[in-house]
């Protein structure tokens, strides 16, 4: 990994931890942004971790751009020696794969897709060498994901799966973006899953939908009353495949404002994960389901 800094105008520093995505790059980005927050450097106004990069916004009337850059480089040296562990939480997110609503939407925009004669799931399963859509869904919902970035629009999580590089799913975005995506669509682009927090334009392949709201600007949903956005970078997510009945049951709970996401505290160690990914993921799942 080669860390690269660049000024974004006179108010931002953009730091690319690595050109390519990896858990190592994400961990470094997250630990550096945590270090910036802890160090309370004067003049810092926004601290934004991303997948393999991060961005600091600052007020150049309070700290000169060169001084800001020097502060970050100092923190980078400290972050390099930090251990690769993270105290976080793991959350179960139910997903109705191949649901009728994203299906309707993807059929409306077929001419913008690489494979006009199939569905997004069929296309993604095929190009990733899965025998069936079911096998593909089993892989997508089988291992946990890191929320590696929150953004694009309010509360939208980008998720990176905690599996070895060889098992990473990769799909291109639509040839031309759609003008519509249902709210709470579970999508995929590049090596990232995403959950669309609001309805709107989008270019990610559409795999399914979750009944679990993740953004509520009115803060009426019981578990979003403290803060309107559910996810933060560093959260772990386990997708759970549910059928129509499971989706409807969860939605009824959401509508009655009684839905409670399943959340457990967990410690993630990158070094332990790298020793045996499958065993480590089983352990994470055990923490979620109290096994």
């Amino acid at each position: 990994m080669k860390t690269r800094y660049s000024f974004g105008g006179d108010e931002h520093i953009f730091c690319e931890v690595d050109e390519g995505m990896s858990l190592e790059a994400f961990f470094k980005s997250l630990s550096m942004t945590n270090a910036v927050r802890d160090s309370q450097i004067r003049g810092v106004t926004e601290i934004c971790p991303a997948n393999a990069s991060f961005q600091i916004k600052f007020d150049p009337d309070q700290i000169s751009p060169d001084d800001m850059l020097a502060e970050l480089k100092t923190l980078e040296e400290q972050a390099a020696s930090a251990d690769h562990t993270l105290d976080t939480r793991i959350i179960e997110v139910p997903v109705f794969y191949n649901d009728p609503w994203t299906h309707d939407t993807l059929m409306r925009f077929r001419e913008r897709h690489q494979d006009p004669n199939g569905t997004d799931l069929e296309y993604s399963a095929r190009i990733n060498n899965f025998d069936s859509v079911d096998d593909f869904v089993a892989a997508h919902s089988g291992s946990p994901w890191f929320v590696s970035m929150v953004g694009f629009v309010a509360g939208l999580p980008f998720l990176y799966q905690t599996v070895e590089r060889a098992k990473q799913i990769e799909v291109p975005k639509y040839l031309r973006p759609r003008t519509d995506t249902p709210k709470l669509t579970v999508g995929y682009g590049g090596c990232f899953s995403a959950i669309y927090s609001v309805r709107g334009a989008g270019g990610y392949q559409m795999f399914g939908i979750t009944p679990m709201p993740i953004y509520d600007p009115k803060q009426e949903i019981n578990y979003l009353q403290d803060f309107m956005i559910f996810f933060k970078p560093g959260d772990l997510v386990k997708f759970k495949s549910v059928d129509r009945d499971g989706y409807d049951a969860a939605l009824a709970e959401v509508e009655a404002n009684k839905f409670e996401p399943l959340i457990r505290p967990v410690k993630f160690s990158l070094d332990d994960f790298n020793k045996d990914a499958a065993a480590y993921n089983a352990k994470l799942e055990g923490a979620l389901y109290d096994n």
């Binding site: 291109p172 682009g189 590049g190």
Partner: peptide
């Protein structure tokens, strides 16, 4: 890895 196939693509990052 993860950037997407178009030469204008990067691994998704922050926009100033």
């Amino acid at each position: 890895f993860g950037a997407g196939s178009d030469p204008s693509n990067i691994v998704d990052g922050c926009y100033p």
